[in-house]
Design a protein around this nucleic acid. Sequence first.
DNA 1: GAAAAACAGGATAGATTAGTCTTGTTTCCA
DNA 2: TGGAAACAAGACTAATCTATCCTGTTTTTC
Lengths: 153, 153
Amino acid sequence: MFSDTVEYALRAVIHLAHQAPAARTTAQIAEATQVPKDYLAKILQGLAKKGIVQTQRGVGGGVSLVKTPEELTILDVVNAVDPITRIATCPLKLPTHGTNLCPLHKRMDAAMATVEAAFRDSTLAEVLADPSTASVPLCDGTDPQPLKLRRKA
Amino acid sequence: MFSDTVEYALRAVIHLAHQAPAARTTAQIAEATQVPKDYLAKILQGLAKKGIVQTQRGVGGGVSLVKTPEELTILDVVNAVDPITRIATCPLKLPTHGTNLCPLHKRMDAAMATVEAAFRDSTLAEVLADPSTASVPLCDGTDPQPLKLRRKA
DNA sequence: GAAAAACAGGATAGATTAGTCTTGTTTCCA
DNA sequence: TGGAAACAAGACTAATCTATCCTGTTTTTC
């Protein structure tokens, strides 16, 4: 239901939040989060354009969060890479409906609203502080592994 | 967040539920739901393979629901065309996590769970009986209009 | 049994997503 | 100032999704 890009972006920012306010290189993030390095670079560029992260070139540079983990929500990240677009008007543009949603689209929109709300209520800090099970969201890892490998293999 | 295919499939079965237990031709459904006819045909084939609808060739034939609108949920339809796959194990396969989800994936899975639950609780009959706003989910229409037209146009 | 209605299925094409690779540019530091 | 570290950006490929078209097959009806 969520794109690979969303999954990757969330892993990256969670990792950055865990290190905040220090910067990490794209290669470091890629290894820790097991995301293909070159693809992650593109995603991080997108996050930079949206003001979620900032980058610093050169030796000792890297990527870091613009805001603190307390100020940044999962929804901010999701909307930066693959926005949750609510159903505002009838997709069939039926004149008799106007801006009212039919019962079907009302339910679909309501479902998206619950996701939106859940994501808006989760700050990165809160995710990191979650006391359940493994306390650290993403820990060690071996090498980057594309999600696609799951499918036809 | 939901694919075009899911949207189209839901429109089609809602339309069929509204006509139930009568059959409608693919062309009739396509026009009523404003879904591209040939693409809808493929989606309906998929729904037939999953046992959601049944088809009848020849004059007077068409597509109809296998179950009654009371027995069929939105989730049944969604899962037939584009399944909501819950996160069962850590996508990073971290050995230290085992089958436990990290806080991030727990939240993502929880979001999907709410959608799953909402869709499981909505039968087609219930959607049709919704007293709010326009009572009929999908009514008249002009001609099929691909969702894609919204984007670059 | 022929014609028409209707679905079945394959081929194809365009758009988007996912992923890789190469080159360029900025920045730090010795 | 030169080299290495690191991001920036574009080209390119593969897979998937969306969509269209064409031919075949089944079924009903006259």
